[in-house]
Nucleic acid binder design. Structure first.
Ligand code: SF4
Ligand code: SF4
Lengths: 157, 157
DNA sequence: CATTAGATGCATTTCATATGAATGTATAGA
DNA sequence: TCTATACATTCATATGAAATGCATCTAATG
């Protein structure tokens, strides 16, 4: 019962894009940021693009950006996409499949899990923009855009 | 996001024991029932024994039985045991770990997941005892014990 | 004391996942 | 146009956790 790296890398990408505002960020740059495989991340990004979470721009100076504001992207939708919607168990070949009460219980539990995630948006997990910018090495002066620093946030961080 | 085979095999074992009443059932027999590895199941059973879910009897005519009635065994406790209580992600080495809001959200979602399972007991997923007995090839006349057939259940099954 | 069955440790295999490499396609700029 | 850059796509390889197999020990029974 672990979230796959695939999912976590997708989420890391989304967090970095959310913190980068409207700027295009290349896959290579994101992969280097987290020290993960460029090729692997490329496939994850393709999935995110096809699912409509991000926009991809090819060619020189290309890169990625969010398709919608971070406040309109549901974490539930993201995880549903990266983890797939198949059940927690594969009952094919199990002797007691016709009489087993587990699958329905597990499905109910999974729904509860996703319901919690549906209550959060990307902006909620990328809210510490000041600290994230520092970690991503994004100049604080540039790229203010939609993620302007909230003065109320600049005392403890 | 899949339940490990380890967990499912543990649950299958518990369902078979619940259906077998007070009878001792050997690991070999359970493994043959589901067509899974005898050795693998043995290690899973050890875990269940150490955790107090089942009693193991060694020696000739030994085997397994539930330590408590199926109606007193929580599915949440079982899954917590087989899946371990570590988080869904491993953040060691992630650049943004100090600023990331994901772990707390995922932990909350996981709690919701387990809360649903806490609402069910082993007896709830092994309730179709008539059909299960047939699948396990347990003589209906013998071993009535605590799992006596409820007449109200014998029309649609 | 022989036989059965669980307990335990270690070696091996298997398989999903992750990674790597090669090639194609699209865009920007010189 | 031509070249450099960056995403798209496919195929091959490597890795590591899970599953399996084997050997040996302990315990109970008759
Ligand atoms: S035990 Fe129940 S849940 Fe597990 S595989 Fe068999 S039918 Fe599916
Ligand atoms: S992105 Fe957040 S949740 Fe994922 S590993 Fe990094 S810190 Fe942990």
């Amino acid at each position: 019962m672990k979230l796959s790296h695939h999912s976590d890398y997708a989420l890391r990408t989304m967090i970095q894009l959310a913190t980068s505002g409207d700027e295009l960020v290349s896959i290579r740059h994101i992969a280097q940021t987290y020290g993960i495989s460029h090729n692997h991340l490329m496939k994850i990004v393709q999935g995110l693009g096809r699912a409509g979470f991000i926009e991809t721009v090819r060619g020189r100076h290309g890169g990625l950006r969010l398709a919608r504001p971070a406040s309109e992207i549901s974490l539930g939708a993201l995880v549903r996409h990266t983890e797939g919607e198949n059940g927690l168990v594969d009952c094919t070949g199990c002797l007691i499949a016709p009489a087993c009460g587990l699958p329905s219980v597990l499905a109910e539990a999974m729904q509860a899990f996703l319901a919690v995630l549906d209550g959060y948006r990307l902006s909620d997990v990328a809210s510490r923009s000041h600290m994230l910018r520092a970690l991503f090495d994004i100049p604080t002066s540039a790229a203010p855009s939609q993620h302007a620093l909230d003065p109320a946030q600049c005392h403890t961080n």
